[in-house]
Amino acid sequence: MSISDWFPIYLTLKVSLTATSLTVVIGLGIAWVLAKKRFWGKNLLDALLMQPLVIPPTVLGYYLLVTFGRGAWLGRFLEENLGLTLIFTWRGAVLAALATSLPLFIKPARAAMEGVDPHLENAARLLGRSELGVFRAITLPLAWRGVLAGVMMAFARSMGDFGATLMVAGNIPGRTQTVSIAIYDAMQAGDVGVANTLVVIMTVFSISVLLLVGWITAGRY
């Protein structure tokens, strides 16, 4: 494999790490709200957030295109005010990875937070802690296994996205070509050696992540 053949691995790691970081920041808040708050429309919000798990990735990609594309209000706003172009850039791949991995993070994180005894959180409030203080001192430390499992799942998912990434970021070698797309490209070009190497790397990585998640979530206080 040439140096340029390794670029998809570099890009995939960059996209996954960025997307996972964003997933954690956004997902922790959402998971906490879904786990601890009662409000009108909660089930609908939950259903919407879980959509990326069930709709075809190309459909998700389409939604992202029409929302963040240059023709869309939001896409124009981001480009004109923040200079942020998402479509057909590596940031677009981050957006696609974020959308697909967010529900995978929220699900275990929410379940873990729901499992934290409300008595403990109330005890912390009575001992003078603010809501953020309760979250940091009690909820998160007691839900960390579920949260970490969510991080791992989100990271693994954002490493492997194909459909949504292709729709939003395209397939530009050296710019937006991630490992999944590079494998497809290599197979199309008959470059079985590159495809095999990338497939083995991805498979080993995915199995490792799942083993790690299993190991982490097995322990109990």
Partner: peptide, 11 residues
């Protein structure tokens, strides 16, 4: 407030 189950922080 002393809860019936004490609500000690297990961690």
């Amino acid at each position: 407030y002393l809860f019936q189950d004490y609500a000690l922080f297990p961690h």
